[in-house]
Amino acid sequence: MFTIGCHLSSAKGYLKMAKDAVSIDGNTFQFFTRNPRGGKAKAIDPADVAAFHEYAGEHGIATFLAHAPYTMNPAAAKSETRQFAIELLTDDLARMENTPGQLYNMHPGCHVGQGMDTGIELIADALNQVLTPDQSTTLLLETMAGKGTEVGGRFDDLAAIIERVELSDKVGVCLDTCHVWDGGYDIADDLDGVLEEFDRVIGLDRLRAIHLNDSKNPLAAHKDRHAPIGEGCIGFDALAAVTNHPALRDLPFFLETPQDDLAGWGAEIAALRAAHVGE
């Protein structure tokens, strides 16, 4: 089944997000666990969670993706910034157990001039502090565009982090199409080659979700600016090919494209469904 959704507001709870997804023919969704710039998370309402589970079961929503705030940086040089990231991760992963078996995505972090090797070590150390043997949530490291001092702009970065994580069975990867394109991976003209490299370096068994976004920038720009599907430098046909690739087609896809309202994402979902083999 083609699983696709978009990024929704969590302000009114899980049930509202599920209903919004279904209203635009989505069968999954993504949301920020708290303000994307950081801050305290909204209290979870058990009644809302129970209603969500019932509604999700009735409408074929099996998976969603929670996204950590952008300000979280476990590779920070400042100890207080890094400690904040560890505390936030610990809290978010505990909250995720209210909806067991789901996905939690994070930007790996920025080494802020300390060097890539140090950044990798710090991120892995943070994950070793927060991951637990009994958690049901899979934490995903997102592929990045490689701007500034970002860690994760190359597949090797993510592989190096995962290699250092003791509970690595709790860790996967979310591939962002805009990010990998901006990072220099040509998914428009050499998708097979990119996936072969991903499999060699990380392993396709680690790939658990796709952020499906076009890019405002040319290949290898290292800038990270998302565009609506078909309105960027990657193009509709190439992104539709991503959803139809045998190694990817059964993964959940999440739109993070700039849209003014649900209708914009609904139009993208309709177009991608029409281009998806078997839809």
Rank of each mutant, 00 (worst) to 15 (best):
G172Q: 03
P36Q: 15
I269G: 01
G193P: 00
Q135P: 05
K147F: 06
T33H: 09
Q30A: 13
E142L: 12
A21W: 00
K170I: 00
L262H: 15
M72Y: 05
G278E: 04
N35M: 13
H107L: 04
R200Y: 08
V49A: 10
I162N: 00
G230C: 15
L219T: 03
A68L: 06
L127K: 02
Q135L: 04
A267K: 15
T71P: 01
H226S: 09
A11Y: 15
A240G: 11
D92H: 06
F84M: 10
L139R: 03
R206N: 00
N98P: 08
E150D: 13
L140E: 07
K19P: 06
D199W: 04
E197K: 06
T81R: 04
R95D: 12
V180I: 10
D190R: 09
M1Y: 01
E121C: 11
C110I: 12
V173T: 13
T177K: 07
Q129N: 08
D176P: 05
D260K: 15
G119F: 01
L140I: 01
P36V: 12
D91Q: 13
N128F: 11
L103Q: 05
H245I: 09
G119W: 02
R154Y: 12
F64M: 11
A50I: 10
G146Q: 03
Q259F: 14
E87Y: 11
M116R: 12
E121Y: 09
L251M: 14
I234D: 05
D92P: 00
I120A: 02
D157K: 14
N244Q: 07
L219F: 08
A85I: 03
P108E: 07
D117F: 08
E58R: 10
R273L: 03
L167N: 02
N128K: 06
Q259S: 10
D91Y: 10
Y185A: 01
R37M: 14
W181P: 01
L251W: 07
Y104H: 08
G183I: 09
F32M: 03
R95W: 10
M72E: 01
D48R: 04
V201T: 15
